[in-house]
């Protein structure tokens, strides 16, 4: 058995709102992600799926629990070496492509910012070449590097978001609801792109979403979250063919299917 790329052990994330009120967003969640696989995290809003993603990439400081990434411990106090490793090898794609790109920066500079910080090129020419190749990989043209985010449509902006994550050649990409703000026909394009890139670079995805049919389509394994607890985890096959937890069953029964006859006849187990 290969070693897990990411190991989350008993992660707890609480937010202190006032002296006598704490939001317990995540209560002891453990899971592992192996290199090159896609792990889907599903649950309703408020179940803590986004919080887990943000705790792992250290946008929050976890209250308790341990996270190991690439064999290094990335929870608790980070030393400089681990921080650089984490920031280079783990990237995030955000939900809203309208607000996650700096409107005052050109696309090329948005994508190149990580390269600048980590010094991943030796000449200006090389930098532009890397950015151009990246833009081509996500289906845009190198000439787009000189444009600003507002000149692009939603689907194109999400491609820029993906290019920004990929340019660092990360081992793990956290995709937080990265397709839910897009139109149906564009969603399929972006998901196909993410699959192609995984086949090419072998990166792993933590795919956070509430759209179960899309999660089923892209994930190898799935974790179901309910009120900050991981209630069920298993391969996609297991979760969808033999759900055991009541909550998973009710979540599955709520998925609309595109068959009007079945929809008319079905009684929901809610």
């Amino acid at each position: 058995m290969t070693e897990p790329l990411l190991k989350v052990d008993n992660l707890v994330q609480h937010f202190k709102v006032s002296r006598n009120f704490t939001v317990k967003a995540v209560n002891g969640v453990s899971f592992e992600i192996y290199p090159g696989e896609t792990y889907g995290l599903v649950g309703e809003s408020g179940s803590g799926k986004t919080t887990i993603g943000r705790s792992i990439i250290r946008l929050y400081d976890p209250t308790a629990g341990e996270i190991f990434f690439n064999r290094d411990k990335i929870s608790g106090v980070l030393n400089d070496k681990v921080r650089r490793m984490l920031r280079k090898n783990m990237q995030m794609i955000f939900q809203d492509p309208m607000s996650s790109l700096n409107p005052r920066k050109k696309i090329g500079d948005i994508i190149g910012e990580g390269l600048d910080i980590h010094g991943l090129y030796s000449t200006r020419k090389e930098r532009n070449r890397i950015i151009g190749e990246m833009l081509e990989k996500v289906g845009l043209s190198p000439a787009h590097a000189e444009r600003y985010p507002h000149q692009f449509s939603g689907g194109q902006r999400q491609r820029v978001g993906i290019a920004r994550a990929l340019v660092m050649k990360p081992k793990l990409i956290i995709a937080d609801e990265c397709i839910s703000a897009l139109d149906v026909s564009i969603q399929a394009q972006v998901v196909n792109l993410m699959k192609d890139i995984q086949a090419e670079t072998g990166c792993a995805y933590l795919f956070i979403a509430h759209d179960l049919s899309m999660v089923k389509y892209i994930s190898d394994r799935i974790g179901v979250l309910h009120l900050g607890n991981l209630v069920e985890t298993g391969t996609t096959q297991e979760i969808f063919s033999k759900p055991t937890h009541q909550y998973t069953k009710s979540l599955l029964s709520a998925v609309p299917c595109s068959n009007p006859v079945i929809e008319r006849n079905r009684r929901r187990s809610l």
């Binding site: 149906v184 399929a188 699959k195 049919s213 089923k216 389509y217 599955l252 998925v255 299917c257 068959n259």
Partner: peptide, 12 residues
């Protein structure tokens, strides 16, 4: 473009 729960193809 919207996979249903039975879609098994590699690409949408």
């Amino acid at each position: 473009a919207m996979p249903d729960l039975e879609t098994n193809d590699d690409r949408l």
